[in-house]
Structures are given as C-alpha cells and as structure tokens.
C-alpha cells in the first residue's frame, strides 16, 4: 500500500486505479465489520443485542468460566481438532509426496478424488457418514466426528502441502539418495525440513477447520458435544445470547490468530523460494 503513492509504480497496465482502490477498501470493511459486531456486543451490558449499547461489561466473559459443559465441549473440540490436524497433515504429506514425485497413471483423477469434499455439500457428507456408521453399528462419538472432520480437512491439507512439494527441486531428494541415505532418512534430513512451513500451515488450518466445523458434527456427534454444537444448543435460549457472543468472540480471536500464522508461515516460505 505504501508504495502506491509513488507516481511511476508499475507499468502502464498496472498504474494506479483510484475507484478500484476505494472499492477494495470498502470490500474489506464489509468483509470484516459483520464479524466484528460479535466481539463488540459481547461487552454490552444488556441481554439484548441492539443499539444503543448499554455500557461496557466483562460479566459475560466471567460467566463463561463457570460453565462446566462449555469446558467439556471445548476439551472435546481440542482433542478432535488435534487428532484430525495431525492425521490429516500426515496423510496430506504422504499424498502430496506421492502425487508430486511419482509418474503414475491416474494421478490427476486421484487429486480430484481427494478434492471432492470441497464441491459436495457438507450435509450430504454428514448424512452419508451417519448412515454408514449406523449400518455398521458404530455408535456416534467423538471418533465419528473426527472421521467426518478428517474428510473435510483432507482437501485443505493436500492443497496447502502440494505447492510445497511441487516447489522444491526433486534433485534435492535424489542428491540425498545419491549420498547414501535411504528413503526414510532422506525424508527426515531433506524433505521434512524443506516442507516444514507447509506442515505448520496444514496443522494450524486443519485444527481451525475441525475446531470450527459444525455441519459434520451436527450429524455425527454422540453424547459428547463439540464446541460449535454447544453453541448451537445455546442459541435456542435468548437469555444465553450474550454469553454465546462472548464465547464466539473468543473463538473468533483464536481462529484469526491461528489462521493468520498458518497463512503467513505457509505463504512466506513459498515466496522466498520464488
């Protein structure tokens, strides 16, 4: 942004376009403001979400501390998120490595297959897994939620890791093999350090997606609710509204921070290599 004041920035095509710039700023404002109302009203000293605001309070946040079920739900979400992020990142690494390194027939079909959950409505996945679990006699639990999240997270993990694996020269791995290291050691001494930023990004993104995921959880949760399920339950009670706002504000904050780090780490390294 700062450089745009210089008159000779870029070429004829890339010269400054004031209306477009204004549009871009408005776009960002519209993108963020709706979400920012949640933290704003979470400090409002009133049961009702409306203007004018009644004054600042932290009581809704304080109240969150005292809710046992909330902390249980939070712990459930963290456990599922951690497991899902680790598994999907490992599976994503394995898949990305196979896709980028081996000449195999049907490679693009495999990528399409892994990316399918991106273009199928979540509800269909949810009910399909629900039906499968019930027919197989698997009781709904955090494990079934985790499986659902795994399917949702896989495309994102693969999409985050693929550019990493594509971005580094295959002769690096060949050099390692040539210098006497087998596949396992080559992975730990060359591949893993080089794709590490992608791994961090994938872990953080997968965790965030799982932590925030609602649609799959809605169909696949057993007796232990995840945090979004808990929030969904609370939405029915108007008097719980302010606490939900406070809780949501906290979740948003954590998500923003995690995703920002993930994106920053994930993209930064890629740009350096170029």
């Amino acid at each position: 942004m700062r450089g745009q004041g210089k008159p000779m920035e870029g070429t004829y095509i890339k010269r400054r376009n004031r209306p477009l710039q204004v549009y871009a700023v408005l776009f960002l404002i519209v993108l963020y403001v709706p979400v920012l109302f949640i933290p704003l009203f979470s400090f409002n000293d009133s049961l009702y979400v409306r203007f004018p605001m009644q004054g600042m309070t932290l009581k809704w946040y304080h109240e969150l501390w005292l809710r046992e079920p909330l902390w249980n739900a939070m712990w459930n979400s963290v456990r599922v998120g951690a497991a899902v992020s680790v598994i999907s990142t490992i599976l994503g690494m394995v898949a990305a490595r196979a896709i980028t390194r081996y000449r195999m027939p049907g490679r693009s079909a495999l990528v399409t297959f892994i990316m399918m959950p991106l273009v199928i409505p979540g509800i269909i996945f949810g009910v399909a897994l629900l039906v499968l679990m019930s027919r197989m006699g698997v009781p709904l639990s955090l494990y079934t939620v985790g499986l659902g999240h795994l399917i949702v997270c896989m495309p994102f993990a693969v999409a985050t890791l693929l550019p990493r694996f594509e971005g580094f020269d295959p002769s690096m791995e060949e050099a390692s093999a040539d210098l006497g290291e087998n596949g396992w050691w080559t992975f730990w001494r060359v591949t893993f350090p080089m794709v590490f930023p992608g791994v961090v990004a994938s872990l953080l993104l997968s965790f965030t997606i799982s932590f925030d995921e609602f649609i799959m959880a809605f169909f696949l949760t057993g007796t232990d609710p995840t945090l979004p399920m808990y929030i969904w339950g609370q939405l029915r009670f108007p008097k719980e509204f302010p606490s939900v706002l406070a809780l949501s504000a906290l979740i948003l904050l954590v998500s923003f921070v995690l995703v920002f780090i993930a994106q920053w780490v994930g993209r930064k390294g890629l740009e350096n290599e170029n």
Binding site: M172, A175, L179, G180, E181, N182, T186, P193
Partner: peptide
C-alpha cells in the same frame, strides 16, 4: 541409488538450502 558406489554432481548442484556449507559436505 543409496547403495551404489557412485556419487553425482547435479546439474543445478542440489545444495540443500536448509543446511550450511559444512553440513552439506558432510551430509553423506
């Protein structure tokens, strides 16, 4: 490759970017 008594100098050299010069040389 890792069991062959041959070593290679690659076209683009394939110097490991995450290691320093000494660790590159002693890699094998």
């Amino acid at each position: 490759p890792h069991h062959r008594p041959v070593n290679m100098v690659f076209q683009n050299y394939a110097i490991f970017p995450h290691l320093n010069v000494r660790d590159n040389i002693t890699y094998g």
